[in-house]
Amino acid sequence: MNDQTQKFRLGVFVIGGVVLLLAMMFFLGMSNLFSRRAVVCTYFSESVQGLTVGSSVKYRGVPIGTVSKIMIRVSDKLVEVNMEIELDHFVGSDSSRGGQQEEFHSFFRSELEQGLRCRLEYAGITGMRYIDFDYFVPPGQALPEPPVTPGIAGALYIPPVPSSFRDILKALSTSLERISRIRFEEISDGLERSLSEVSGILSDPALKSAIGRINDAAENLERGTDTLSRVFSEARLENLMNILEKDLRAIDALTGQLVDESKGLKLAESSAAFRDAAGAVVDGQAQLANTLEKLNQTLDAVRMLVDYLEQDPSSIISGKKKPPLAE
C-alpha cells in the first residue's frame, strides 16, 4: 500500500516534470527547431536600432519568421540582416502546409516583381522593431541588385525601402532646409521700400491739383452743354458754333495740359484703389512681422523635435520620458 503510493507519487512527479519540461520548451520557442525554414536576407543603409536577433519578421502583418543574424559589412557599412522564414506559414495551392524551399523562392521572386519590399517597423511601445514585408513600391519596378552577394548561399535578397520613420525625418530636414533658404530680410526690406514710395506718391501736391483741375474741366463741360441747349437756334447757332469751337479749343488745350500734368497717373478710381492698396500694405507689414516671429518659433520647435528624435527615436512612440519622482 505504502509502496504503491510512493510509486504513484514518483510516477506523477516524473511524468509531470517531463510534460512540463516539454510544454515549456515548446512555448519558449523549441517548436521552431522542428519547422522547415528558408533564409532570406536584406541590407539596410539606415540604423537598425531596435532590431535584435529573434525580432519577428512579418508578411503584411502575419508573423512568418525571425531575424537570425545581424552583421555589419565593413566594406560598405551596410547592415546585413538574415531572416529565417518558417515555411509552415505558407499554405500551398493543394492546401499542403510548409511547402518546399523552391516553391517558396518562386513565390517570393514573383512577389518581388509585384513590388514586395521589406521595411523596418516599430513593434508596440517598446522601441523594438520588426521587419515587415509588404508591397511598398508599385509593381513592375526593376529589382535593385543586392549590394553584395548574400552571405548565406541560397538566401533570397529582399530589397529594403526606407522606414516610414526615416521618411518623416527626411521630409522634416528638407523642409527645414528650404525654409532656411527663404531670404525673409530682403522680402521685408523690399516691402518697406515700396510702401514708402507709394505713400510718397500719394502725398504729392501735383496729384491733388491735377485732380482738382480735372474736376473743374468736367464742370465747365457740363455748364457749356447747358448753355448750348438753351441757346440752340439757327441764328445763334453759327455764333454758338464759333463759341463752341473756341470752347472746344480751350477744352482741348486744357485736356492736353491735364494729360501732360497727370502723365503716369490713373483716373480718380485708380487713385482710390491705390489708397486701399497702401492701407493693405501697412496692415500686411504688421502681419508679416507677426508671421515671421511665429515662423521663427515654429522653426525652433521643429529643430528641437528633430534633435530629440535623433537622440531617442523611440520617444516618438513612447512619448517623452517622465522625470523621475522627486525624492
Partner: peptide
C-alpha cells in the same frame, strides 16, 4: 534510487 527520488523529488514538490 527510487526511494531517494521520492524523498528529494516528489515529497519536496
Amino acid at each position: 534510487t527510487a526511494y531517494y527520488l521520492d524523498l528529494c523529488g516528489a515529497k519536496s514538490l
